[in-house]
Design a protein around this nucleic acid. Structure first.
Length: 858
RNA sequence: GGGUGAUUAGCUCAGUUGGCUAGAGUACCGGUCUCACAUACCGGGGGUCAGAGGUUCGAAUCCUCUAUCACCCACCA
């Protein structure tokens, strides 16, 4: 989020990153209750008002932590706009939305089978229930037939299987499939519910799978979703056997008062004593748990408030289908579609205290409901009675979160902020809340603003957590605390690490070494800046303003300017597509691999020549290098800034201090307009157009680097110590190429540590080295590089050449084979075939040269 | 039970529409305190692209199957 915000701000956009938090109703409730338990206080004794007061205190103390963490990360939010879902303005938006939906009939109240958390004693939406695989049991229980003369499979009992035996206390039927001929004789008959000694009917329902177990299912309409459906269809009695806290109620007969799990054990024990347990199997199945308390959720009948979702999601589906809203990566839209297309009504009431109390007042006189946008309703809308009482329940936290994009901007008032910042450009979030938050924000945005709240949804990957790690067979990195990493490696390093591993659509496995790597990078950049500043002390602002002298630009100057333009373009493209890893990798490679490793090394010669600037040309060349150094350093500060705001600001301020005042706003390099800004964070994003591609310079540099690399490789492989110089002879039939390399003589001397350096036109190579020695050779394009070495190393050279020859011969073999296939030559595109032919020729001649060299060694 | 994504170097991952000898960082090995940086510099080794088939002149890339892993969804008692 911060990379995007900083990047777009520099690019001239009016950016707003609005920070804030929600009130996390259930999670907070759990924390407070835990505290209260430790103090031996019951929240019901304490009362609603005192509890809420306590929750506010907790919120004052801890609610800001996440904001502090954002600040630590250097996030450039507009802190003055920090919002909380229970702020007065946002609460007003909640009531307004509730009332409008209620008036349209899209919010209703009803009694249904819902997910119930016995620990928090509240309803939960389907999304708030997490299904986890648990190893349980499947108990097979005998239910005697009511009429002793009845028979099923020759016995006067049937067998039902269940994973929750205690629910049998609420059984009001036993079901089998109407097509199941085995049980045809039982149609219209009854059985006796053991323990309760209740006579319950057999019913027939398609829902029953004949293949599963005995094909007989116990039906507990009040405590199972399927059974609930069957209960409705067959007009069965709904017997609720549980109290809100999960203990068995008075309908549970002798088991009343027992906790549900205790009851389970007792029921099983009693059945066993009566010989009614046929068998017990191990059974692995999915069990719903509360995503906040972790408690096992019970299907439970209760009266709740619901949002009718079907009519609301139509537009939300269309918005993504027609591209008004775009998921990045696109694949997440499947998750979104699947949920919306199968969405069920949303239970929005919660039997808790911390949150938005439902804005409905019940009339004590006429029973009518009054829904109010105001904080309180004084009297009944229908009869005018002042004997009204607000609904006890509160709203699901996600109800207010769904309004965030407009409730934070002053809605329902028509504010300038709404006008300016709605809809937003991008939402950055995790996939786990696509249902909870993303989809519902789109639904509400479309409904109340007539427009989706954001154009792009960037779904970032998630760091693997402890739980997941435990489940993995092999260890995949450690759990990392970002604040600890900030302490150890610096904020910029942490930011870069996170971005570099932010690969689309996958999870993050972090290890501490990765942070260390980015710290090194930050350090590298810092040191390169020190180098530049140290070596440009005598560069006057006046010189910088005059800019670089195109006539005196050296190859490396042209190359690094072109490369800077290239990396800027690549970074623009990457950020446009939310490819944060690409952003970091491009930066890294440019800064370390090109700017530091090559450019800084290449200009040292010119910089250090300041004591002898006798020639005017040399002075000019030196000043050019300095101008380019400052130009690129300053530009780097800008393109690195979104991810590394701290080190870039520090460096940039140093540059500004030196040159800021001396430069005019229209300075030719584009530096002036930037340096007139107070901070790099508001400096303009560099325009790549100012750094046009220079293919000639890039091509030449590539060849130069290869040639220098060839000498270095020979040195290293032949064990020449870095302190010693080597004599080098470059030969080629290509006069132009030789001239080019010769023009770069000083670079060979500095970077390859060469002694005598000869460039010589030659058709054939001259194998002799210096007197008493020999030459080790390498080929770089049309040029042969020969490094003079003492005779003692001749065996090492032979081994080196033999190995190289083997490699080339195998390549030659493969190329020949390929070209020998007629269909390849016929069908492959011409350029591909030509490339192969060229390679064949080149490899062949290289092999020939190598063989000659080997023979030359004797 | 359905769906999605993955499987490439010891580790973490790149690899656009099939086409040079499959890359990076890190780890590893060898050599260096060379005046920005040892959090560094120079050089190097390391991969049957999960497996098997297929399409193609040509496959890490496209298709099928298999194996393993992860995640999401689902009312099988």
């Amino acid at each position: 989020q911060d990379v995007l915000t900083r990047w777009k701000r520099m690019a001239g956009c009016n950016t707003l990153w609005l920070p804030g938090t929600d009130h996390a109703s259930i999670a907070t409730h759990n924390v407070i209750e835990k505290e209260l338990r430790a103090e031996g206080v019951d929240r019901r004794e304490m009362g609603r008002e005192a509890f809420i007061k306590r929750a506010w205190q907790w919120r004052e103390e801890y609610g800001g932590i996440i904001i502090e963490q954002l600040r630590k990360l250097g996030c450039s939010c507009d802190w003055t706009r920090t919002r909380f879902t229970m702020d007065p303005g946002l609460s007003r938006a909640v009531r307004a939305v509730f009332k409008r939906l209620y008036d349209e009939g899209l919010i209703y109240r009803g009694t249904y089978l819902v997910n119930w958390c016995p620990q928090d004693q509240t309803v939960l939406s389907d999304e708030e229930v997490e299904h986890e695989e648990v190893k349980g049991r499947l108990w097979h229980i005998r239910y005697p037939l009511a009429d002793p003369r009845d028979r099923a499979g020759g016995r006067n009992y049937i067998v039902v299987a269940t994973t929750r035996p205690e629910t049998m206390l609420g059984d009001t039927a036993v079901a089998f499939n109407p097509l199941d001929e085995r049980y045809a004789p039982l149609r219209g008959k009854f059985c006796i519910l053991p323990l309760m000694n209740r006579k319950i009917p057999f019913i027939q329902d398609d829902l029953v799978d004949r293949e599963f177990g005995t094909g007989m299912v116990k039906v507990t309409p009040a405590h199972d979703p399927n059974d609930y459906e069957m209960g409705k269809r067959h007009d069965l009695e709904f017997i609720n056997i549980l109290n809100p806290d999960g203990s068995v109620n008075e309908n549970g007969g002798p088991y009343a008062g027992l906790d549900r799990f205790e009851a389970r054990e007792r029921v099983v024990a009693d059945l066993e004593a009566q010989g009614l347990i046929e068998r017990i199997e191990d059974h692995v199945h999915q069990v719903g748990h509360s995503y906040r308390s972790g408690a096992i959720v019970e299907p439970y009948i209760s009266e709740q408030w619901f949002v009718s979702m079907k009519p609301l999601v139509v537009e939300a589906i269309a918005a993504v289908e027609d591209g008004r809203v775009r998921f990045v990566p696109k694949s997440w839209e499947n998750t979104y579609f699947h949920w919306l297309r199968n969405v069920r009504d949303w239970p929005i009431s919660r039997q808790l205290w911390w949150g938005h109390q439902i804005p409905v007042w019940h009339c004590g006189d006429c029973g009518a409901l009054t829904v109010s946008e105001e904080e309180t309703a004084e009297k009944c809308e229908k009869c005018g009675s002042t004997n009204v009482k607000q609904d006890e329940d509160i709203l699901d936290t996600w109800f207010s979160s769904a309004l965030w994009p407009f409730s934070t901007m002053g809605w329902p008032d028509k504010t300038p902020d709404l006008e300016r910042y709605y809809p937003t450009s991008v939402l950055v979030t995790a996939h786990e809340i696509i249902f909870f938050w993303v989809a519902r924000m789109i639904v509400m945005g479309l409904k109340f603003m007539g427009d989706a709240p954001f154009r792009d949804i960037y779904i970032h990957p998630m760091v693997f957590d402890e739980e997941t790690k435990k489940k993995m067979s092999k260890s995949l990195g450690n759990i990392i605390d970002p604040l600890e990493m900030i302490e150890k490696y610096g904020t910029d390093a942490v930011r870069m690490t996170l971005c570099a591993t932010t690969i689309k659509g996958s999870n993050l496995y972090l290890s501490e070494e990765r942070f260390a790597g980015r710290r090194s990078f930050t350090n590298k950049f810092w040191n390169s800046a020190r180098f530049v500043l140290m070596n440009t002390e005598d560069l006057a602002a006046e010189d910088l303003r005059r800019g670089r002298d195109p006539q005196a630009l050296e190859l490396e100057d042209r190359w690094i300017l072109s490369a800077f333009g290239r990396v800027t373009r690549k970074i623009d493209a990457a950020l446009n597509e939310y490819e944060f890893d690409q952003y970091i990798h491009r930066l890294y490679h440019f800064v370390w691999g090109e700017y530091c490793d090559w450019y800084l090394e290449l200009v040292k010669g010119r910089l250090y020549s300041k004591d002898k600037p006798e020639a005017q040309a040399a002075a000019r060349s030196r000043r050019n290098a300095q101008v380019v150094l400052v130009t690129v350093l300053e530009g780097l500060c800008r393109i690195m800034h979104p991810v590394a705001p701290f080190v870039t600001e520090e460096v940039w301020q140093a540059v500004r201090e030196r040159y800021g005042d001396g430069l005019g706003a229209k300075e030719a390099l584009g530096l002036g307009d930037a340096l007139s800004c107070e901070s790099v964070m508001i400096a303009p994003w560099p325009s790549a157009d100012r750094f046009p591609e220079d293919p000639e310079a890039e091509g030449k540099m590539e060849r130069l680097m290869e040639a220098i690399g060839a000498v270095r490789r020979i040195r290293s492989e032949m064990g020449v110590p870095p302190s010693e110089t080597v004599d080098v002879r470059a030969t080629s039939a290509d006069r132009g190429e030789l001239d080019f390399l010769e023009s770069q003589r000083r670079h060979f001397e500095a970077l390859a540590r060469t002694g005598s350096l000869v460039f010589e036109k030659a058709e054939a190579e001259s194998p002799e080295g210096d007197a008493g020695g020999f030459a080790s050779t390498a080929m770089v394009g049309p040029v042969t590089i020969s490094v003079g070495l003492p005779a003692s190393l001749v065996e090492a050279e032979r081994a080196r050449l033999t190995k190289e020859l083997e490699r080339l011969e195998s390549l030659l073999e493969r190329t020949k084979k390929k070209l020998a296939i007629p269909s390849f030559v016929e069908k492959a595109p011409e350029n591909v075939v030509n490339a192969e032919r060229e390679r064949l020729n080149e490899t062949e001649s290289q092999c020939a040269v190598l063989r000659e060299r080997l023979e030359g060694l004797g």
